[in-house]
């Protein structure tokens, strides 16, 4: 249970670590949009190169990236195979109703590259940003939604508290499991139904204790004068730095490049 690393922050001193979480979040969203706006391989090459550059700049070991890719590799392969049979253009191979076409091959290459880029980009964000910075960034970026009566501060506070209690509750789960095992609970044998049933005596005490903790926490927060987001100040103020400005400039060039490549070079057969 302990092996689950939440948020997966990797401490390093890199340019990307120095960037403002808001800038990183904006870049991520813009990047995702961009990957899906590429219509030929030249345009797609730009985000791919950018992904590799980000990976190197973040100073996080490539092994960490590969490890996370391992979990999703099956999904990637399955999507690639499905896309292979879907598309138009010249037919290469025909077995009964199924045919592999030029468009199909193009499609699967594009989809694999897109998924990989997507993954690397989001990994770069979580590897280089602490969970607290991340929630902070999200809170500040979503502030305009307050006008729509969406409780941005409350959502961010819930995320902060959830992150804080993940390790505590994992520890508790371990303890409850040991306690139930010590009393003869069998959790490692039997079919799926039996195993699922064996989890009930773990989850019930866990829920009870989580609710109790929540009540305690609410009391402690009230004791510390918590009264929602209104009139609240922050110790850490986020400020855009030169790195972020540089990032914005670079990113605009990349966007312009992709659009130009899309316009002036022929689109691939889909």
């Amino acid at each position: 249970m302990r092996d689950i690393v939440f948020g997966q922050y990797v401490q390093q001193k890199s340019i990307i670590h120095l960037m403002d979480p808001r800038a990183k979040l904006i870049f991520l969203v813009a990047y995702i949009v961009l990957i899906f706006c590429t219509f030929n391989f030249y345009a797609l090459a730009v985000p791919v190169i950018l992904a590799v550059v980000m990976m190197l700049l973040s100073k996080v070991s490539i092994g960490k990236y590969l490890k996370s890719l391992k979990m999703i590799i099956v999904v990637v392969i399955i999507t690639a195979i499905f896309n292979l049979f879907y598309g138009g253009g010249q037919v290469f191979l025909k077995i009964g109703p199924i045919s592999i076409t030029e468009g199909g091959i193009n499609n699967s290459i594009v989809i694999v590259l897109r998924i990989l880029c997507l993954l690397i980009a989001s990994e770069t964000l979580t590897f280089t940003t602490t969970p607290t910075d991340l929630t902070d960034g999200i809170e500040r970026l979503l502030k305009p939604l307050k006008l729509l009566h969406i409780k941005v501060h409350e959502i961010a506070m819930m995320m902060t508290i959830a992150l804080r209690f993940v390790p505590t509750l994992l520890e508790e789960t371990d303890k409850i499991m040991l306690a139930q095992k010590a009393r003869g609970a069998d959790m490692d044998s039997g079919g799926i139904v039996k195993r699922a049933k064996a989890l009930v005596p773990i989850f019930i005490p866990l829920f009870v204790s989580a609710i109790r903790r929540a009540m305690d926490l609410a009391m402690a927060m009230e004791c510390r004068c918590y009264h929602g987001g209104e009139g609240r100040t922050r110790m850490k103020t986020l400020r855009f730095s030169r790195v972020d400005v540089f990032g914005f400039i670079l990113f605009s060039f990349v966007t312009a490049g992709i659009i130009l490549l899309d316009i002036f070079l022929p689109h691939i057969v889909r």
């Binding site: 902060t160 009264h227 110790m235």
Partner: peptide, 22 residues
């Protein structure tokens, strides 16, 4: 365990004064 709000010590301590609008 149930009194600490943030996942970094100094941010937790800042919680009170933040609420007071310091």
């Amino acid at each position: 365990d149930n009194q600490l709000v943030a996942s970094v010590v100094e941010e937790d301590i800042a919680f009170g004064p933040e609420n007071l609008g310091v």
